[in-house]
């Protein structure tokens, strides 16, 4: 077991920010923490990496408590903060060198690592430029690079793709994928469902400081009752027709707003049931103009669990 979080609690004043959070992460695994703004992701991560103290519970890395061995454990973790925590007037190279030294790298080894990391984040040609002259995406890449200098066993990334263009985002996602494939244990927080789905073996969904669902993507989606949604564009909606559709096996719930030509039908096994839905509609004089099936995803799970969407 690489990392173990047990009944972790953290509050600021009277506000509980992290509420009894427990999970474990295995070596080489990539773990996603998915949650909306203000869910407590950054706070949770900060307690795990020993930046802020926690009120109750325990965090173990390789069976060592972070409270007892903070320096040993900090050495094993590489943290990519949500903010660009770099010195803007220093060059990329100097920044990497500085952070390397903070993790105990020295001399030739440090210089070698600087070059390797610059190569890895694909910014070798900008090594001597000041960070402040970099684009948002490039800054993010150096921000990640700084956490890689000391070749940590665990890499914790706090929304590393926030506020950047799709191209840089893809570059970063590929980078993370590569790191995980090379054996690094990764904790990745995001409020982008697609990123977490793409990168992570296991996912924890966090809301209001609580982990409300935990498991592989498949496990999570299977938990969804009526996970798929069939969207119908129709004319001549009738009460009777809608009632009949509702009676079909597998159909869980229908959303039909007045004065709208759309029907949202929540079903299990969407593809098997779709034909019956359309036939039933047509038999009741409803004209079906278009059909679209939305497979279950984490977004719909989050919606179901909280009644809200991940992003507004």
């Amino acid at each position: 077991m690489m990392l173990e979080v047990k009944h972790l609690m953290k509050s600021y004043g009277k506000r509980q920010i992290v509420k009894d959070v427990s999970f474990t992460i295995n070596k080489g695994e990539s773990f996603g923490l998915l949650g909306p703004n203000g869910a407590g992701k950054s706070t949770l991560i900060s307690t795990i990496c020993g930046l802020i103290s926690y009120d109750q519970g325990e965090v173990y890395v390789n069976n060592q408590s972070i409270k007892k061995f903070p320096l040993v454990i900090k050495q094993k973790i590489g943290i990519v903060p949500q903010e660009i925590a770099l010195y803007p007037t220093m060059s990329a190279k100097d920044n990497l060198m500085f952070w390397g030294k903070m993790y105990g790298l020295k001399g030739a080894k440090a210089s070698k690592r600087v070059n390797e990391v610059l190569e890895f984040v694909d910014l070798k040609d900008r090594a001597k430029d000041r960070i402040e002259t970099f684009s948002g995406g490039m800054k993010r890449r150096i921000n990640i690079g700084a956490a890689l200098m000391h070749e940590p066993e665990i890499l914790i990334m706090d929304e590393p793709t926030v506020g950047i263009d799709p191209q840089s985002r893809n570059h970063i996602l590929e980078t993370v994928k590569k790191l995980n494939e090379s054996g690094k244990t990764i904790i990745y927080t995001s409020h982008y469902m697609e990123e977490v789905e793409y990168l992570c073996d296991r996912i924890g969904i966090i809301d209001n400081g609580e982990v409300i669902a935990l498991g592989t993507q498949k496990e999570l989606c299977n938990r969804l009752a009526g996970g798929s949604v069939v969207h119908l564009d129709v004319e001549n909606k009738t009460e009777q027709g809608i009632d009949s559709i509702n009676e079909i096996k597998n159909v869980k719930h229908i959303v039909s707003k007045q004065n709208e030509t759309k029907l949202e039908i929540y079903v299990n096994e969407a593809h098997e049931t779709m034909g019956e839905i359309v036939t039933t509609a047509v038999n009741h004089g409803i004209k079906v103009l278009a059909v679209e099936v939305q497979e279950p995803n984490l977004e719909s799970l989050f919606l179901q669990l909280t009644g809200r969407t991940l992003r507004d």
């Binding site: 900060s46 990496c49 020993g50 930046l51 903070p70 320096l71 040993v72 900090k74 050495q75 973790i77 943290i79 903060p81 903010e83 660009i84 925590a85 770099l86 010195y87 803007p88 952070w99 903070m102 993790y103 105990g104 700084a146």
Partner: peptide, 11 residues
Amino acid sequence: IETLARLMSSP
């Protein structure tokens, strides 16, 4: 700019 936080999460 949170370099201080980064320093504090380094060993």
